[in-house]
């Protein structure tokens, strides 16, 4: 995973329009030029999964594209690109957001957590573990977004019930499972998250 101050090489950003240059070195010129449009690229700072990243991004870059194409965090998926499916869900300052519907420049200064940032070391996050245990997935395409939405949903709701989980996952579509096992996993994951919290 290219992250942290050690990475100062220029990383290519694959975009549908060709290759642009993004600098991740904080000492680099403050404003890179977008080679395609010849406009200066805004410099932003994102703290992604705990690591600060200084990035020159084109104004029109979506947060999901910066995460996937610049930072190679491809766990965040693009399902619809029309704000409907929730596969691109990440945490933006602790709240769930569809990263296909946020400009990277809007997130300047924010803390972002992606699915890659959820587990600690080799230990899965309780919500990930619950999805594994309850088989809350089939093809797995919706799963990163589902899990990120679920963690944000239950974070401050120890009492959440099935109706609350179904209402709270309205922004996430799954084409495989029929949702039963997803709901079971979220309820169980919530219980574990809150009992671990209570137990210190």
């Amino acid at each position: 995973m290219p992250s942290g101050p050690g990475v100062s090489a220029e990383l290519p950003l694959a975009s549908q329009n060709g290759t642009r240059t993004l600098r991740t070195d904080p000492k680099a010129a403050p404003h890179a030029i977008d080679q395609e449009t010849e406009r200066p690229m805004p410099e932003i700072t994102l703290t992604v999964n705990g690591t600060p990243q200084n990035l020159d991004v084109p104004a029109n870059a979506l947060l999901v594209d910066v995460l996937r194409d610049t930072l190679n965090l491809t766990g965040t998926h693009i399902g619809c690109d029309t704000s409907q499916c929730g596969a691109c869900t990440v945490h933006l300052d602790g709240r769930s957001a569809k990263s296909c519907t946020v400009l990277a420049v809007q997130a300047d200064g924010a803390h972002i957590t992606t699915i890659e940032g959820l587990q600690s070391g080799a230990t899965l996050h309780p919500m990930q573990e619950a999805f594994r245990k309850h088989h809350g997935l089939q093809c797995g395409f919706c799963t990163p977004g589902m899990i990120m939405a679920a963690v944000a949903l239950v974070e401050d709701k120890p009492e959440i019930d099935e109706a609350g989980v179904r209402h709270g996952l309205e922004g996430n579509l799954c084409r495989c499972t029929g949702y039963q096992n997803i709901v079971a996993a979220v309820l169980d994951g919530a219980r574990t998250m809150h009992s671990t919290k209570a137990g210190g």
């Binding site: 709240r95 569809k98 309205e170 922004g171």
Partner: peptide, 9 residues
């Protein structure tokens, strides 16, 4: 309105 992600933004 919409869903939690939409309501958060």
């Amino acid at each position: 309105i919409g869903d939690p992600q939409v309501r958060n933004r």
